[in-house]
């Protein structure tokens, strides 16, 4: 690992300003992506800006029916948060599938989305929840859909003078959801496929990860199911088929594109079935 400068700013403004002034600077959250990449010489930052001292960037809050999750919130905190376990347990499930318990004590939810891996564990639940990324330049904030925030493999929409301060989930109540991850071993592996499906009233949302350059919503399938209270097995099968067709997976060390399509087909159908009262029963 190369040597580098290290700062632990006390204010958001200082953090952002350090970043603006240093071309080779990176924010350090949990470091579980960053330090691995530095170790492998894939990244050689000139400066790490450790965000740990910025306590306002940590925590989970429900304010007036809007859920705020700050960027530096540890993955283990998301996994065990009482409010979340009650309202959005599938988000906790996703957290519980990220890395190992040891990783999760360090990794942050913001780091996961900023790192923008196609397999990012929080990708599918957040985009299925229509979560929005809150971006700060030290003074003002702007907000955009997480779906648009992740722009490609390891790419995000942040500009140089900005950082991700957190996520908001508008209207978090009344979501029924399921998170699923397929990997080579049960835990502690990157996803071959990850899936979140949500049912809110008669609205359906399906998000699939590790099957394109970023996690994807499959809106054609969602639309097909919209308004139907209890879709039957045939319809669920059809929706699952659309998902399997619309993803654009590649062959890699975790699985072939074909296998990914088979997994998506089976599990989208199964998860939707679990969410709807009668449909999907075999």
């Amino acid at each position: 690992m190369n040597n580098f400068n290290y700062e632990r700013p006390r204010s958001l403004r200082e953090a952002v300003s350090l970043r603006s002034r240093n071309a080779g600077a990176f924010y350090l959250a949990g470091g579980t992506d960053l330090i691995v990449q530095m170790r492998d010489d894939l990244l050689k930052p000139s400066l790490l800006i450790d965000l740990k001292a910025l306590k306002q960037l940590e925590g989970i809050d429900m304010k007036k029916d809007v859920l705020h999750i700050a960027a530096l919130t540890k993955v283990s905190a998301v996994e065990m948060d009482r409010t979340l376990l009650r309202t959005l347990p599938f988000l906790c499930d996703a957290a519980g599938f990220l890395g190992s318990p040891l990783t999760r004590n360090k990794a942050t939810i913001g780091g996961n989305i900023c790192n923008a891996s196609p397999a990012a564990e929080f990708g599918t639940p957040l985009i299925a929840l229509n979560a929005r990324a809150v971006i700060s330049d030290g003074e003002k904030t702007r907000v955009m859909a997480v779906e648009d925030f992740m722009t490609g493999v390891k790419k995000n929409a942040l500009k140089r003078g900005e950082l991700l301060s957190g996520f908001i989930i508008p209207d978090p109540k009344g979501h029924k959801g399921r998170f699923f991850k397929k990997s080579r071993i049960k835990l502690v592996d990157l996803a071959t496929v990850n899936i979140t499906v949500i049912k809110k009233g008669t609205e359906y949302r399906i998000a699939i990860g590790s099957c394109f350059i970023k996690p994807l919503r499959i809106r054609t399938a969602e639309e097909m199911l919209r308004g139907i209270k209890e879709p039957d097995a045939r319809l669920l099968g059809k929706a699952a088929r659309i998902c399997a067709e619309e993803i654009k997976p590649i062959d890699d060390l975790r699985g072939t594109a074909d296998f990914r399509r088979d997994i998506v087909f089976h599990y989208v159908k199964k998860l939707l079935g679990e969410l709807t009262a009668k449909g999907g029963q075999r």
Binding site: I35, V36, D50, T103, K106
Partner: peptide, 10 residues
């Protein structure tokens, strides 16, 4: 935690 992924300065 994995101490191999913690910087000493942290």
């Amino acid at each position: 935690v994995n101490s191999c992924l913690v910087l000493a300065v942290e």
